[in-house]
Amino acid sequence: MERQLICISCPIGCRLQASWTDETDITIEGNQCPRGEIYGREEVLAPKRVVTATCMTAGSPMGTEVRRVSVKTDAPLPKEHIDSLLDTLYSMKIPLPVETGQVLLANIGGTGVNLVATRSM
């Protein structure tokens, strides 16, 4: 099996050639760095994406000055978990103060990936 991929690990966007016979024998070509290899493999096996979004902060009134805190997953999350993560995080209210890197939601869906704040407020 073969697939053309474009690496999204960095802005260079290497054009990857993935070829495999089974899931244990995947060859990635065209990558300029080791991250391309990892990306290529994952994209074939179980595609993952980093999710970024914003959450409401606690105590922010629904009036004019809603303050939102930006968040991300601390590692790429398997795609099938993304929609339910978004639903969850939009209903969360983060108590202030919050620090960059603070875990807001641990081990999302048992994946080991955490949701962390990307800004201190």
């Binding site: 096996l45 179980a46 595609p47 994406r49 914003t54 409401m56 809603v66 939102r68 398997p78 795609k79 099938e80 993304i82 929609d83 978004l86 639903d87 939009y90 209903s91």
Partner: peptide, 16 residues
């Protein structure tokens, strides 16, 4: 509307 009010259906599947 406001973020969080709409159902998310991003069509982001898992493995193709």
């Amino acid at each position: 509307g406001r973020v969080g009010e709409f159902q998310i259906f991003s069509r982001t599947g898992g493995k193709e």
